[in-house]
Design a protein around this nucleic acid. Structure first.
Lengths: 248, 248
DNA sequence: TCTTTTTTGTACCATTTCGCAATAAAATCC
DNA sequence: GGATTTTATTGCGAAATGGTACAAAAAAGA
């Protein structure tokens, strides 16, 4: 909904992890304590009986399982522990809640992936962290692995909703960008040869993450996904030259 | 739903393209003229006012846009040109219709991809056909590009429905298998060096198809997708060694 | 021509879904 | 202490959804 900030992509642009949901301002915003001093200043009116971030994370959990249409307001209000008027009051209608939940996903997962892009790490360490994080995130879920929200949930809604589509595209681009930056840095530091085809490596790594996301939601065993990840990591860390050595 | 046959995967196992929907037998099957001689033999009772295959293709079209939950029976019966009781009579309930539509997708698209696996073609010709077909299929749609049904529609339903999940897994495996076979044949025929890392190439090609599917539904311009395709084709046809040459 | 079979069309049903009105509760302000 | 403000609760309404009963229509069979 609020397009004034990029937010982290689904798989880890190295961006500061700021929880700035309070900046939504328009309509029933999601108020957080982040926007208020720690002093016991209290707003008039009955206090909320729930914590918006916690409730939003619960909603995200439901949406991740069921997608948009198959997740009802009853499902959501039960999971969030609030009644429907409260839900509407705090988050807006169903679509607005979905958009907020998606942003939340991107923040949470973005934070997790951000650690993999720490410049203090070697290229291989980064790649291993990226894929380990992807596996952890995509294989998580009370009711079974759910894959990646951007690919498997928002992605499906993309053609029906221009705003979701826009966010999906931004997420995809952000991933590509982060990978590109990582690889270019690796070249500067001599971890990769000077003429490395960065775009090929970005593509191989990025699409490996995508195929893992798809397969995870189909409940492909973790071991199989690790094979895919290992192959992509080895390929990239060898600057795309691994197959040449492997042949002998 | 009927698991006794593999059917073509979403991106082209080289399998005979037989329209055998009539084999469903169980419950209200989808009758086709394929199962009946061309003689004017006629069953008792009022004849159908619609052609099941045509209706099913229409249903597939709707499901491809909206996914399972967001596509209502009203949407479907309107698109198919039949009333709900007729829909139930011919195809079963909503879920059964979805499963049949998915199988139909696999048959149709499988047939299209099958031509790319013709052994009379060179490896490069095959690869170019595979990706051209993928682009055509994933970018098609009256209301905009819809990506791949297996990835973007059935894939999202995979965790909620074990049968869909099973079909998705089979489709993914079938793609891998077809690519593997293609590459192994290319080695036998000397199009690829003897020690080529086939599994790496299968992964790169397969995941390129996946990332294209995702991006297509987010309405990434065709030119951008063609860049991805071109890169994967060049990489594979060089036996994974393209980056080495490219570096100089 | 009447009976049987299959399909179509109309109407309906029970439930679900999304969103909201009204009232009560819990806090601050004057 | 009463007024105001914000949130929680209860209940509801309109519409949508998936599925079905039944009568009529259209064909083959006896």
């Amino acid at each position: 909904m609020v397009q004034k900030r990029k937010g982290p992509p689904f798989s880890g642009a190295p961006v500061a992890n700021t929880v700035d949901v309070a900046g939504t301002a328009a309509g029933p915003g999601v108020e957080t304590t982040a926007g208020q001093p720690a002093a016991p200043v209290r707003k008039r009116g009955r206090p909320r009986a729930f914590t918006p971030e916690v409730a939003l994370s619960r909603a995200l959990d439901r949406f991740r399982d069921g997608g948009y249409a198959a997740t009802s307001l009853d499902d959501l209000s039960a999971a969030m522990g609030i009644n429907r008027p409260s839900l509407y009051g705090a988050f807006g209608d169903k679509r607005e809640l979905f958009l907020k939940a998606y942003e939340r996903y991107r923040e949470e997962v973005g934070g997790q992936f951000a650690t993999a892009f720490d410049p203090a790490l070697t290229l291989r360490q980064s790649m291993e962290r990226i894929f380990a994080t992807a596996l952890d995130v995509y294989l998580a879920g009370e009711n079974g692995p759910r894959g990646c929200f951007t690919v498997m949930t928002a992605g499906s809604e993309a053609m029906a909703d221009p705003e979701i589509r826009g966010t999906v595209l931004r997420a995809l681009a952000s991933t590509d960008k982060a990978l590109r930056k990582l690889l270019e840095l690796a070249i500067v530091r001599g971890e990769l040869p000077a003429g490395t085809d960065v775009e090929l490596l970005v593509q191989v790594a990025g699409s490996a993450i995508h195929t893992i996301a798809i397969r995870a939601r189909a409940w492909t065993p973790r071991a199989d996904l690790e094979v895919i990840a290992r192959r992509a990591i080895d390929f990239v860390c060898a600057g795309g030259a691994a197959p040449v050595e492997r042949r002998r």
